[in-house]
Amino acid sequence: MAKITYRQALNQAMAEEMDRDPSVFLIGEEVAEYQGAFKVSQGLLQRFGAKRVVDTPISEAAFSGLAVGAALYGLRPIVEFMNWSFSFVAFDQLVNNVGSLRFMSGGQFSLPMVFRGPSGGGTQIGATHSHCPESWFAGVPTLTVVSPAFPEDAKGLLKSSIRSNNPVFFFEGERLYGLEGEVPDGDSLTPIGEARVCREGGDLTIVSGGYSTHTAISAAETLSANGTEAEVIDLRTIKPYDFDRIAQSVRKTNRLLIVEENKPFAGWGAQIAYDVQRRLFDWLDAPILRVTGLDLPQPYNGKLEAQVLPNVERILAAARQLLA
């Protein structure tokens, strides 16, 4: 075990997988010479050369589409979006081509590719740069959506995603890059589709993912100081999410709170809430609640942005409502 940052964990994952498989390459804006806008690709150009660490012009649609063609041909591209908010320029490529080509070809082609980059708000860069579009892409039937909260999973999930024969949309927390954590040495993979229990508790279940997991843990600690024990589940994979792990917890606590940064309408928490009420209706002692990003474009103003994002206060208020 070594203590490294989330950023370093991602960097190691890419380096190890590029070492392992010559068909893996990284493409995106500023990934090579600049060493990554957030330094996630630091040193990769020097190590693997310009053929495999490819700087692009500011052309998200073209380089995403190019990666699709390369994947159809059999390569394993990692596409970095400098910010997931910029991926919308390539929305057609992501939804129509990544999302449909294997299916529309009757299964003749695979798309072994990863789209990754930072997402989410909290850094006061305004509405166009603060999106958390996990749910938009999770709405596409063939896409796998991953959102690690800890360095260990950032590395383990990115390695799994690169090795997957299916397209994985990998959401990194912009606010998590500097987070330090223990990461196992060597070839350790986090399975896609498995949640992790971050904190055990018997009074209510809080399901979260990505940066919000940390907010949920903070709230759980406050609750604990007041004698309420929340079980916090970090989804790690948004789609397919780990229903069984949630069910196991809900059968114990009978109360479910979902915390997600997505905007409320049809955020992934809505799907979880639907599935849980449908399959575990008799186990619930209270309506399922969701704490989400508020239904507003992201404001620049720092105080307002803190209110718009899921925060400890709103989580505590929801928890009190659940336990009342």
Binding site: A61, L66, A70, Y73, G74, Q93, Q108
Partner: peptide
């Protein structure tokens, strides 16, 4: 689509496939 004949499709979003085409050429060069 016909993979056996290296036919990468029929694409119906106008212009969208031109970027995919560039990726095929990228992979051929790679």
């Amino acid at each position: 689509f016909d993979r056996a004949h290296q036919f990468y499709g029929g694409h119906a979003i106008v212009g969208s496939h031109t970027a995919v085409a560039a990726g095929l050429a990228f992979a051929q060069q790679y």
